[in-house]
């Protein structure tokens, strides 16, 4: 049996809401290499989203569900699993938003499609305007790909100034928690018997 899909999760007690994770995410996913703000010709389009309310501050991203509802709902098979990652093939996506409806975490987003720093246009889809038909911009489903192929692992984790994000490997986590639980029981038995 292969391992369960790993995922990134934030600690709301450590997160300060600075959005460095979002910026870092957008930087590593930019198809044009960018180092400075001035080099960017596209908006910052992250794949995790800072939630900031009176009760909680933390970014939310994909859990790479084993039975990914987004994938099972996708009518064109644009969402698949590759190397333990639930992955969107943006070329195949038709922008139907069913995955957004299916995801219980809000980890799916529909974003403007950029290639080589330029907006991608529709093939033929035009909008009727007063000045005639205008070719429309393309949109695609976008989600966390756990920075597949990025050296040093997920950029959000690597760049967080407060170390509030981590990669969870469910099997490892379970084993660690099992051991901790066993040690806790051992401790409690000592109290009663000793």
């Amino acid at each position: 049996m292969c391992a369960l899909n790993a995922f990134v999760v934030a600690d709301p007690n450590k997160c300060i809401g600075c959005k460095v994770c979002e910026v870092a995410c957008a930087v590593v996913h930019s198809d044009v290499p960018v180092k400075t703000v001035g080099q960017m010709t596209t908006p910052i389009i992250p794949r995790l989203y800072l939630v900031k309310t009176a009760e909680v501050t933390m970014p939310v991203q994909c859990r790479h569900c084993e039975d990914a509802p987004c994938a099972n709902a996708c009518p064109v098979g644009a969402i698949t699993q590759r190397d333990g990652i639930i992955y969107v093939d943006q070329e195949a996506c038709v922008g139907c938003k069913t995955c957004m409806l299916a995801c219980p975490f809000g980890a799916m987003e529909m974003v403007p499609y950029y290639r080589n720093g330029e907006r991608v246009k529709q093939l033929r889809l035009t909008e009727e305007t007063g000045e005639g038909p205008v070719l429309q911009d393309a949109f695609v489903a976008s989600k966390c790909d756990r920075c597949i192929g990025v050296e040093g692992g997920p950029a959000c984790v690597a760049n967080c100034p407060k170390e509030a994000l981590r990669v969870v490997r469910p099997d490892e986590l379970r084993r660690t928690r099992n051991l901790e639980a066993a040690l806790a029981v051992l401790e409690s038995v000592k109290n009663v018997i000793g």
Binding site: K35, M40, N159
Partner: peptide, 9 residues
């Protein structure tokens, strides 16, 4: 000066 996007940069 040009603003680096990432803290390490």
């Amino acid at each position: 000066q040009p603003k680096a996007l990432l803290p390490k940069d």
